[in-house]
C-alpha cells in the first residue's frame, strides 16, 4: 500500500473511532452522580493528556537519535511530534479549565498536575519558538534536538518539585481523586474507546505533519542542488 493509502486509512480509522467515542461520551455513558454533565469532558481531557505526554517523549527520543545518527528524518519526526503535542497539550489545559470552573469554582488552581502541565506547555512553546527563529537549517535541527532532550530531562524533576510544593502546603481545594472513581464499567469502556480514538487521531495528524516536513526537506535539498548545478553551468 502506498504512503498515501496508509494515511487515508489512518484518517478513516481515526474518524470512525472518533464518531464511536462521541456517541459513547454523549449517549452511552451514564452521567456521573456528583459532578453531573460536566464530567463528560473527562473523556476528552484524559486522552489529550496521554497523547501530549507521548508526543513530548517522542520529541526527546527523536532528538537523541538525531544527534546520534545525524539523519534529517529524526528531526522531522521530532518537530512534527512537538507541533502535534502542543495542540493536545493546549486542549488539556482548555478542557481542564472548563471542567474546573463548575467543579472547583475556579478556572485555575495551582494544583500539582495543573502546574506541571502548564510548565510542560511553556517548555514546548519555547521549543517551537526556537524552531521558528532558527529556520529550517541543520543548525536549527541540532538546537531543537538539544532543547528537546533537556526539556525531557527537566520533566521528572518538575513533577517531583511541584508535588512537594503542593503537598507541603495545604491544598485549597480537594484533589480530583474523589471525583473520578469510574464506578460504572460503561465509564471505563468509554474512556478506553476515547483513548483509542485520540491515539489514532494523534498518529494520523503526526503522519500528515511528518510527511509535510519530509517533503519540505526534499524540496530544500533539490533547491540546493539546482542552485549548485546552475552555478556550475555558469562557470563553464
Amino acid at each position: 500500500m502506498s504512503g498515501r493509502g496508509v494515511r487515508l486509512g489512518l484518517g478513516l480509522v481515526a474518524g470512525a473511532l472518533m464518531l464511536v467515542a462521541l456517541y459513547m461520551v454523549f449517549v452511552y455513558v451514564p452521567t456521573e452522580a456528583d459532578q453531573g454533565i460536566v464530567q463528560r469532558i473527562f473523556y476528552f481531557h484524559v486522552p489529550c493528556a496521554w497523547v501530549a505526554f507521548v508526543s513530548f517523549a517522542l520529541v526527546a527520543i527523536a532528538g537523541i537519535f538525531y544527534l546520534w545518527l545525524g539523519q534529517q528524518v529524526w528531526d522531522d519526526l521530532g518537530y512534527a511530534a512537538a507541533e502535534t503535542g502542543m495542540v493536545f497539550c493546549t486542549l488539556v489545559l482548555v478542557t481542564g479549565s472548563i471542567w474546573a470552573k463548575p467543579i472547583w469554582g475556579a478556572w485555575w488552581t495551582w494544583d500539582s498536575r495543573l502546574t506541571t502541565t502548564l510548565i510542560l506547555w511553556l517548555l514546548y512553546g519555547g521549543y517551537l519558538m526556537l524552531r521558528a527563529m532558527a529556520g529550517d537549517s541543520e543548525q536549527g535541527a541540532r538546537f531543537g534536538a538539544v532543547v528537546g532532550i533537556v526539556a525531557a530531562i527537566d520533566v521528572p524533576i518538575v513533577i517531583v518539585s511541584v508535588r512537594l510544593w503542593r503537598t507541603i502546603h495545604p491544598a485549597v481545594l480537594v484533589t480530583r481523586q474523589g471525583g473520578h472513581g469510574l464506578e460504572d464499567p460503561r465509564m471505563v469502556a468509554t474512556l478506553l474507546v476515547s483513548l483509542a480514538a485520540f491515539t489514532a487521531l494523534f498518529i494520523w495528524l503526526l503522519c500528515l505533519r511528518f510527511v509535510t516536513l519530509r517533503m519540505h526537506t526534499r524540496l530544500n535539498a533539490l533547491t540546493r542542488s539546482l542552485a549548485l548545478a546552475e552555478a556550475a553551468a555558469q562557470d563553464t
Binding site: 521549543y127 533537556v150 518538575v158
Partner: peptide
C-alpha cells in the same frame, strides 16, 4: 528572546 523563554520554565523546579 529565546533564552528567557526556554530557561525560565526549565528552571521552575530549582526556583520552587
Amino acid at each position: 528572546l529565546v533564552l528567557p523563554l526556554l530557561a525560565v520554565p526549565m528552571f521552575v523546579p530549582a526556583l520552587i
